[in-house]
Every structure is written in structure tokens, then in C-alpha cells.
Design a protein around this nucleic acid. Structure first.
Lengths: 190, 190
DNA sequence: GGTATTTATTAAACTGGTTTAATAAGAATT
DNA sequence: AATTCTTATTAAACCAGTTTAATAAATACC
């Protein structure tokens, strides 16, 4: 769990004692490609850390798959909305590859935060990090064209295009497979 | 500061002692209509609580005003991105009406969090609340048409339309004044 | 290795927005 | 009350996406 430890310490100082206390609650878990960590209607009571693999986070709205995120190595993830609000999820978490995660239950997260001010701070700061990511996401959605968002994704997460089918990436970018194909054609003609 | 106190306690239990400790740092401040709490290039070192009034949060990108939010009574606000990342702001915070706010400096927020685990928890939970708001915002931007977003805003914050000029609301919705006008016409014809 | 299935591209018709510019309506100022 | 300035609507031409459907390419499977 060295990578998990390092990721936590990249947010804030955590003493060895507190770290050890926290990490004891994490368990290793594996998911085969095509299996689900979560389906609509279920409650999510785990937080995950992606060790190796790829999980997509999506809803199906009026028959259309709407990909919200691809979680790859080093991501903390869950259906954070359902997790926070303690409601039935409306989303899928599906392994797009064989995946290895560390998982901690919601109750245990609470125990960890109650026990350690430092780790509660880590919790606050990781929420802040999530805020920053969503802030950029919103600004991208508002201010960039689809073409610009495609190019930006290509630049920021180039390996995604080798791992994930294009129609899912189209969905992630908020357009249809046809639309993305047109954009790619337009770009290749320059 | 009764409203501020109540808002904090709506997140989590805070003892009288901790609450008193925290509230001591807040100062009342007023801004005349048309004045700025923040301009691009400045560092923001305050968090605000809106007591009475309305402040718009916007950037100007290639000459276009891009309204990201209208802060009205009961909102905690700041340029959260610049605040968290400790960078020069790229945004404006402008009073659209004469406004009264309570303000606390970043250093004092840190003091409060260091002193009180309960208030640090409030900090984490209010970050979570912000997450939930942004989560909805992203889903709205991705899944709803402009017309649907207009109707939703009309339903959720009807008074905004009496307080704020329509071209700013258009910007908030991510379209041009012409575009919003067309949508309104289309709706009125039904 | 051939067949079936999934994924990606292309074309054509359509749509909801854009830009630009003119006009109308409303608010503020003198 | 008249003038000026700001805000909202309308029209026309345009454009980047959509939908639907057909085709092509790639992948999986028996």
C-alpha cells in the first residue's frame, strides 16, 4: 500500500501512528473486466483507491450512456454524490479492465476521521482537490468547444485512447460517436 | 451573526465554546452596488458569508463576460479556486446590489481549523456541499438543453430574474442574450 | 480461418444555437 | 419632458453539432 500512503501524504503531513491506524482499514479487492463495483439502486458504502486498472463511472439517461469519469491508477474514487448524500446510486461503476483497488468502508472512514485530526484534514483537502477538478471541468464545459475539449483530453490523458473505446470517450466529452468522428476527421484534414 | 451561526450548525454540531472562538474572527463589511470585492490579478485572502445583497462571480474571456455564479443571502463564497490554489485570481467578484457580508481571513480560517476539530469538520462538510452543487452543475451542463436549464433556474431561483439583468443570466446559462431571448419567445408561444 | 458482433466512419437532412445588425423598449440623467 | 444610455427582441445568414441509416473496419468466438 506504499502508493496509497504516498498519495495521502501528498496532501498533508500524517504521523506514522495515524497513518498506520488509517491504513489498517483498507482491504485489497479485484474486479474482472466487465464486472460492476456499483449499479443503480444500490447504496455505496465504500471509498476506493485505484491500484491498477480502469473503472468507468456513468449513468444511463433515456437509454444513453453518459460517462462522467474514467478512474485510472492513483485515483481515489467512489460515486461521491451518492456516498455523501447517502442515497441510492443512479450510476454504474464498471471495470473496463481487470482492476485492483484498495477499499475502505464509510463507517471506517468515519472512525479514521474521528480518531485523527490529521486524517480528517486529509479528507478536507482531498475534497478541495475534487473541487478544483470539478471547477476546471465546469469551465471546460462552458468555455471550450467540443473540439478543444477533445484536444485537451488527448493531451492530458493520451493513454486513455488506447485503453477505452472511442464511443465512451465521445460520451465523456458530451457528444455522439458520430460527432467525435467528425471532429477527428476535421482535425486530420489540417 | 445569528444567521451565520445557524448556517454553520446546519452542517455539524459545534460547541458554544468552539463557535464563539470561530465567530470572533468574522468582521462585517459592506459593498456599494458596482464595487468589486475582487479583480483579476489580485490574491483573495478572505472567505465571505452573504448577509444581504447579491454578488456576481465572473471572468472575462476574450472580451466576453462569463458569469459563473450569483451569490445571494445565505451563501458562503469566495473565488474558491484562487483561494485554494493560492494563485492570482482571474475573476471578478462584483456587488450587483448594495451588499452586507461577514468576512474572515484565510489565516484566521486556518487558526480556527487548527484550534477546533469540530470546525475543521464543518470545513470538510462545506467542501462536500460545494462538491454536490458542482456535481449537479456538471450534470446539468452535460445532460440538459439550454431551454431545460433556463426553466430549472426559473424554478429554483425565481427572484434572481427580478434582481439581475437578463444578459447576465444568459451568460450564467452559457448562452448569448440573443439565444436566451429566442428560448423565451419559443416558450411563450406554447 | 470464417462468421458474427462490435466499433468507427461517412453521408444527408435537420436543429438549436451563433453572429451581426437593426429596432424597440426601459431606465437614468439632465 | 427630452435625451441619452442600457437592455431586450427580432431577423437573416451561418455553423457545429444532432439523428438516422448505410457501410467499412476491427475484434471476438466457435
Amino acid at each position: 500500500m506504499e502508493d496509497l500512503k504516498q498519495t495521502i501524504r501528498s496532501y498533508t503531513h500524517v504521523s506514522d501512528a495515524d497513518m498506520e491506524f488509517g491504513l489498517r482499514f483498507y482491504k485489497k479487492q479485484t474486479f474482472k473486466k466487465g464486472t460492476f463495483l456499483l449499479k443503480p439502486g444500490q447504496y455505496i458504502d465504500s471509498f476506493y483507491f485505484m491500484k491498477k486498472g480502469c473503472v468507468s463511472y456513468y449513468t444511463i439517461e433515456q437509454g444513453n450512456t453518459q460517462v462522467m469519469e474514467f478512474f485510472t491508477e492513483g485515483y481515489f474514487f467512489t460515486d461521491l454524490y451518492a456516498y455523501i448524500e447517502d442515497i441510492q446510486s443512479q450510476c454504474y461503476l464498471e471495470a473496463l479492465e481487470d482492476s485492483v483497488v484498495y477499499t475502505i468502508s464509510k463507517d471506517d472512514v468515519q472512525k479514521v476521521f474521528d480518531h485523527s485530526h490529521q486524517l480528517e484534514r486529509f479528507g478536507r483537502l482531498s475534497m478541495q482537490r475534487t473541487f478544483v477538478i470539478n471547477f476546471h471541468r465546469i469551465n471546460q464545459l462552458r468555455n471550450l468547444s467540443n473540439q478543444e475539449r477533445y484536444l485537451q483530453l488527448l493531451k492530458k490523458r493520451p493513454t486513455l485512447f488506447q485503453r477505452v473505446p472511442q464511443y465512451l470517450i465521445a460520451s465523456y466529452l458530451g457528444l455522439t460517436p458520430v460527432g467525435l468522428s467528425k471532429i477527428r476527421k476535421r482535425l486530420s484534414q489540417k
